[in-house]
Design a protein around this nucleic acid. Structure first.
Length: 363
DNA sequence: TAGGCCATCTGGTCCT
DNA sequence: AGGACCAGATGGCCTA
């Protein structure tokens, strides 16, 4: 896994920094009515008299700043030199007027650009916040915007599905869901963060991550009646699912049908834009994450661990799941061999065991 | 060098 | 009218 990919945010103009390309001498920054009463030349008076519409324009021009007026006066002098007959300038657009308007347009454009920059910076800040609450946050190896959004969607989906199932999730299936639709580098990153051996992943010809042996894991982790009975999807719901709105139907509706978790219902699947992730119907879901100040304390690749604590309140009581997705270097208690056996693809590295232990401990 | 990602500029559209 | 939002264009940086 590359360690020092440097993806600096290229900010030519930080939004806290004044836009040096903006010339404050132009009209927008001057209070209205504060302009000196400049003496008008004969040409000016003639234009106003001969064209009533010009009068409104002249009122606008009074709002322009001194510098703009100076430019206008200079141009008028040029016009006088170039055109001896002032009557010829009674008709048609005047260059000085056009120039003044152009300057105002330019100022507004600068202001709009600054607002747009600020808006995009706000958007990027929000995206950065999102990066910090999805698995595999790294200051040095940032996920791209699109990958961050995809991973966040998958993460929400995986957590929600875990809640809806109401049992400890299978890690491999969890990672499968996380990696749905992600690029191979990002998949490797996620797997690396979770200390999964990427050998367990296979990529099909479409570039989508597939897990040949994962069906059984899903069957075990996300049981559904159709799978058990071999019936087409959407023929019924588990007890748990019947107690909450069904989100497993393509045309999903409350109390509706169920489909296999992995049958065209992946986060990247046909439900895109149609549904929300399944929420716990009768419980409480909360996602805890470390404060930003805690990030980077691990010091390993600038990576931090991500912890998501899920609480579910049910008639049976309150369950508490902790999903700690930790990078290499984090210390954990050793897991058991049986746990490893349940998770094909786990390597034998201590960190991997530790991560598995943490994941399955449910503490 | 091509491709990916990014920030920025820009003009259009919609809304207040 | 002006601001927010959006998408296309453009150019820079970085990596394979």
């Amino acid at each position: 896994m590359p360690t020092d990919i440097h993806l600096e945010i290229m900010l030519t103009l930080p939004y806290e920094e004044p836009d040096t390309t903006f010339e404050p001498r132009f009209g927008a920054n001057y209070p209205r009515g504060s302009l000196p009463d400049l003496e008008r030349d004969p040409i000016h008076s003639l234009d106003v008299m001969s064209n009533p519409e010009r009068e409104e324009e002249e009122e606008e021009e009074e709002e322009d700043d001194v510098s703009e007026r100076e430019e206008v006066e200079e141009e008028r002098e040029d016009d006088n030199q170039q055109d001896a007959n002032i009557l010829h300038r009674k008709r048609g657009p005047r260059k000085n007027k056009t120039k003044g308007r152009q300057e105002r347009v330019k100022v507004r454009r600068h202001e709009a650009n600054a607002r747009e920059r600020s808006r995009m910076h706000g958007l990027n800040d929000a995206l950065e916040s999102l990066r910090k609450v999805v698995p595999c946050y790294s200051k040095t190896q940032k996920l791209s915007k699109i990958e961050t959004l995809r991973l966040a969607k998958n993460y929400i989906w995986a957590l929600s599905e875990t809640l809806s199932v109401g049992k400890k999730p299978d890690l491999l299936g969890f990672v499968q869901t996380l990696c749905k639709g992600l690029s191979q580098p990002t998949t490797n990153l996620v797997a690396g963060c979770l200390q999964l051996n990427t050998r367990s992943f296979l990529t099909d010809h479409n570039g989508e991550v597939t897990f040949p042996s994962s069906r059984a894991h899903y069957d075990n982790t996300y049981p559904y009646p159709g799978a058990e009975l071999g019936t087409p999807s959407g023929q019924g719901c588990s007890t748990l699912d019947s107690a909450k709105p069904s989100y497993h139907s393509r045309h999903y509706s409350y109390g509706g049908q169920c489909e296999p978790y992995y049958d065209n219902t992946s986060p990247e699947g046909g439900r895109e834009g149609q549904i929300s992730p399944p929420l716990n119907f009768n419980g409480i879901f909360s996602l805890k994450h470390d404060e930003p100040g805690e990030y980077g304390k691990s010091g390993h690749y600038g990576m931090r661990y991500s912890s998501a604590s899920m609480y579910r309140v049910s008639p049976e009581g309150r369950f508490h799941y902790d999903l700690h997705l930790r990078p290499a270097g984090q210390s954990y208690q050793a897991g058991t061999q049986s746990q490893q056996a349940e998770l094909p693809g786990w390597d034998s590295e201590p960190v991997g065991r530790a991560t598995r232990q943490s994941y399955q401990a449910g503490t």
